[in-house]
Design a protein around this nucleic acid. Structure first.
Lengths: 153, 153
DNA sequence: AATAGACAGTTACATTTGTAACCATACCTG
DNA sequence: CAGGTATGGTTACAAATGTAACTGTCTATT
């Protein structure tokens, strides 16, 4: 009997934060590889694009809230997308601190192609995890999301 | 009816990679805050400590496999832990490329305190997610892990 | 035993990220 | 309307990370 390790009975392999992290890396990385390779986008850029694509016109702060990114990340992503001409800013009339962000035609096109990729990947995931696994994961994540919205960071 | 956004029907909010990532960040960050604040550990360091603490003597490569970290991360973490005198290396007799890593008494002590924190946090998570949520999440993660072991990265 | 490849671990460099300080503007309160 | 404080967004700097090249050692093949 292994007396040495019996004492602590802790297994990283079963520790939820670790498992969650590892899974997220695996799942996200496979998708990231696609938009990185084909479009040279970073994750913050993709998220910003997705946020604007699905919700239309938003401010940088709103993008940050919607996609849970720090404002510096958003700021940098906006610059990058602007440089690509996928996004344009317009000043708010009332409040001159605020700028509204919107996808250009090119940006919208890219967004649509990328959402197609995203949907393909979702389908692939269903195959990979099985309907049950997917279902379980999704409701587990819902539980986390509920907890998150209570304990606001 | 909103004609503008009906076209694409994609919602970041429902996209699994996004949800997983966000959940992982939330869950992991809360724990990371503890070991970072109290011990000044980085995540690679904590993982290395955990790997060595639970499995005893290992090589750097083994630590990497066990905790899914790139060897450079492991290398740097090992340096940091060594500097703290929480870990010592010994050369392998047969193969001089290999070094065996082991926690010192101080390292073991730290490991035990940290696993106590980890267990506390696990308990807290159960409260936060509820038994059902935790169960669902865990089995969803198992599905991901199974998929990972098939599609080796 | 000589050469080529594989492997353990480190290092160097570029990129990404987090933190905090920073502008500019807006709001609120006396 | 003067002061302080909050807010939107950017920037500067430090720390963390990924990639690739590198060193040293081992193994296999000839």
């Amino acid at each position: 009997m292994d007396t040495k390790n019996v004492i602590s009975e802790f297994d990283l392999e079963q520790f939820l934060p670790f498992r969650l992290n590892r899974a997220a890396e695996f799942i996200a990385l496979r998708f990231a590889a696609a938009y990185k390779a084909e479009y040279g986008l970073t994750r913050p850029e993709w998220r910003t694009l997705a946020a604007l694509g699905s919700s239309g016109r938003m401010t940088a702060t709103e993008v940050g809230v919607h996609s849970t990114m720090h404002k510096t990340k958003v700021s940098r992503a906006v610059f990058a997308l602007e440089e690509r001409r996928w996004l344009k800013r317009t000043q708010d009339d009332g409040d001159r601190r605020v700028e509204h962000l919107e996808l250009t035609a090119a940006g919208t096109k890219a967004y649509q192609e990328l959402t197609r990729l995203a949907r393909d990947y979702s389908a692939e995931l269903e195959g990979l995890l099985g309907m049950d696994g997917l279902q379980a994961l999704s409701s587990g994540l819902t539980a986390v999301e509920t907890a998150m919205s209570k304990r606001r960071r």
